[in-house]
Amino acid sequence: MPAGGFLSGLGYLGEGFRLIRQPGLRLFVVIPLVLNILLFGIFFLFLAEIFGAMIAAAMGWLPDWAWLQSLDWLFWILYGVVILLMLAYGFVIVANLIGSPFYGYLSELTEKHLTGQVVVSDGGWAQIIRDIPRSLWREVQKIAYYLPRALGLLILGLIPVVNLVAAVLWFGFNSWMMALQYVDYPADNHRLSFPGLKQRLRRNRPAALGFGLPIALASMVPVLNLVVVPAAVCGATAYWVREAEASATP
């Protein structure tokens, strides 16, 4: 099946939400969901303080120009968007570190549901335990890819006027990272390296951005961000089956 474009990518998160309701997949949705609820409560309390401090500090850097001071409400919104995007993916990073072994197996079961073929082996809980070191290493690679780029964008986002562009760049970067984050699960099941995954997604970047955009937006919404992770894993697996494998060759 030929790979689609940006609009094609947009539909996979919705398909993921439909897939997580399948009886054979529910258990591996519920367990990490409970972990995410506990994590989100701690994460929200901790970051609420940091959010307020960063906004106050950034606003204090504004020069005493009348036209800038009259636009302080706009800068509040822009700073809020930039930091919220940063925190949204920060939550995803921590949640996926905890749930990565479950999500790898959820992706495998989803692909079996979609194609009727066993991806690796039907090892059940024993396979989940064996895959923990490899799953955690994949998450570390994604964090190492994300952090320096996020830091650069964060610095841009804290500069008045420049943050007009930084907010747009953050949306694009977060969309790309969400695609990398979740398509990595089926890619790992097929033993495709993380550098290989980046190359594969770049061959159809519009579809990857289309897939990642609604996940990035959903990750910014409290409560919804708790259930979007397993849905994104299932949607990413459908994306892998129909889009990523179609880009296996240039």
Rank of each mutant, 00 (worst) to 15 (best):
F6S: 00
F6W: 12
L7Y: 12
G9V: 06
L10M: 12
G14Q: 05
G24Q: 10
L33W: 06
L39C: 06
F40I: 12
G41V: 09
F44S: 13
I50Q: 12
G52R: 14
G60M: 00
L68S: 07
S70M: 04
D72T: 15
W76R: 13
L78M: 15
Y79I: 14
I83Q: 12
I83P: 06
L84S: 15
L84N: 13
M86R: 13
M86L: 15
Y89Q: 13
G90E: 09
Y103D: 04
K112A: 03
H113D: 10
H113R: 14
V119L: 11
V120A: 12
W125A: 03
D131L: 10
S135H: 07
L136C: 00
K142F: 11
K142T: 00
Y146I: 07
A150I: 11
I155V: 15
L158M: 15
I159H: 03
I159C: 09
P160M: 09
P160T: 05
V161Q: 11
V162P: 05
L164G: 13
A166N: 07
F171S: 10
F171H: 02
W176Q: 03
W176C: 06
M178Y: 09
L180Q: 03
L192R: 12
K198H: 00
N204G: 06
R205G: 00
G210W: 12
A218W: 08
P222D: 09
N225C: 11
L226T: 04
W240L: 00
V241K: 14
E243N: 00
A246W: 09
S247H: 05
